[in-house]
Simulated assay, not measured.
Amino acid sequence: MFAAVGGFFLDLSLAIALLAGLSLLGVAAVGFAQGLRGIDSAQIALDPLLLVVVSLVATAISALFVYYFRRNANPVERAESWRALWHRSSWGWIAFALIACSGYSAVVSAFAQEMGIDITPTNQVLGEIIRTHPRSLLIFAVLIAPAYEELLFRRVLFGRLWAAGRPWLGVALSSAAFALVHEPPGLGVSSGWGMLLLWSVYALMGALFAWIYRRTGSLWTAYLAHAGNNLIACLALLA
Rank of each mutant, 00 (worst) to 15 (best):
F2T: 15
P48R: 08
A106E: 10
C234V: 07
L173Q: 00
A177F: 01
C234W: 07
R78G: 03
V5Y: 10
L64M: 07
H87R: 13
S190Y: 03
V52R: 14
H226C: 07
G159P: 02
D11H: 15
Y202F: 13
I212L: 15
I99R: 09
Q43R: 09
A97K: 00
G116S: 05
L169E: 11
G186S: 03
S81G: 06
F8K: 00
A63K: 14
I44C: 11
S89G: 13
L56D: 11
I61W: 02
W86Y: 14
M205Q: 04
S41Q: 12
W193F: 08
A141C: 14
L224H: 02
A141Y: 12
E128H: 09
A42W: 07
D40R: 15
T221I: 00
L56E: 15
L161T: 04
A172P: 11
V53Y: 08
I94H: 02
G217A: 08
L56S: 15
S136F: 10
V181L: 08
A176K: 04
S23H: 04
G103R: 09
L197P: 07
V171I: 06
I139Q: 11
L198H: 00
L10Q: 05
F153P: 08
G217W: 03
W199C: 05
H133I: 10
C234D: 15
E114I: 10
A20Y: 14
F178N: 11
G165D: 01
L137N: 05
D47F: 14
E77C: 05
F178D: 13
F209K: 03
W82K: 03
I144Y: 09
A110T: 11
V142M: 07
I117G: 05
P75V: 08
W199L: 05
M1H: 09
A42Q: 14
D118S: 06
A176C: 12
G228A: 12
S105Q: 10
